[in-house]
Simulated assay, not measured.
Amino acid sequence: MGIAARKFEEIASDIARVATWREELLSSALDALESRHPKLAQALLENVGNRRRAGHWICAPHRAYGGKSPCELLADGDEDSVWDLLDGATPVEASCDKTRTNLAY
């Protein structure tokens, strides 16, 4: 069945499944960070304020490193660059808008 023939309900269901899977992967990335780089994980959590945001940050591409995510940098063995990215982020407490953080994208 082509995409044009699919029902919106099917598409919405697929999108929900992908979103759930993505959140699970983000959580898994943070779990891996906590087990392999606990000090970095703790600093990230303190900086961004919660696990969900930390998972998103670690998986988000950053222009400063050619579009690589911190997860990719760590896979390449470049922990120092991840610390540098984190050092460039504005902590939640210092932010005027408590719902957002400047995460050095």
Rank of each mutant, 00 (worst) to 15 (best):
G49H: 04
Q42W: 01
D84V: 05
E72Y: 03
L85N: 07
W83T: 01
A12P: 00
S27D: 15
A75K: 14
K39N: 03
L44T: 15
S27I: 02
A4V: 12
R6K: 14
D76N: 13
L40P: 08
C71L: 15
I11N: 01
L40Q: 09
F8V: 04
Y105D: 08
R36M: 09
L74H: 10
A32H: 14
A43F: 02
E24G: 15
G77S: 03
H62R: 07
S28K: 15
S13G: 13
A5W: 07
A32T: 12
A89R: 05
C96V: 12
L33A: 09
A29H: 13
E46M: 07
G55F: 03
E24R: 15
E23C: 01
E9R: 04
D97H: 09
Q42I: 01
Q42L: 04
A19G: 05
V82T: 05
R100E: 01
R100S: 09
C59M: 14
R51D: 11
C59N: 11
E79D: 04
S27W: 08
D78T: 00
R100G: 00
H56T: 06
H62P: 12
A60I: 00
D97Y: 07
L85I: 00
T90I: 08
A41I: 01
G2L: 10
R6V: 01
I58Y: 06
S95K: 05
G77W: 03
A32I: 12
S13N: 11
D97K: 09
R53D: 06
W57S: 11
E23I: 03
A64H: 01
A94F: 03
H62D: 01
E34F: 05
A41D: 02
A60W: 04
E23D: 13
W83Y: 12
I11R: 13
R51A: 15
C59V: 06
V82M: 02
K7H: 12
G49P: 00
L86H: 02
T99G: 02
E23A: 14
A104C: 13
F8A: 08
R17W: 02
S28T: 10
W21P: 02
C71N: 05
A4S: 08
S69I: 03
E79T: 11
W57E: 09
N50A: 04
L74F: 07
A64M: 03
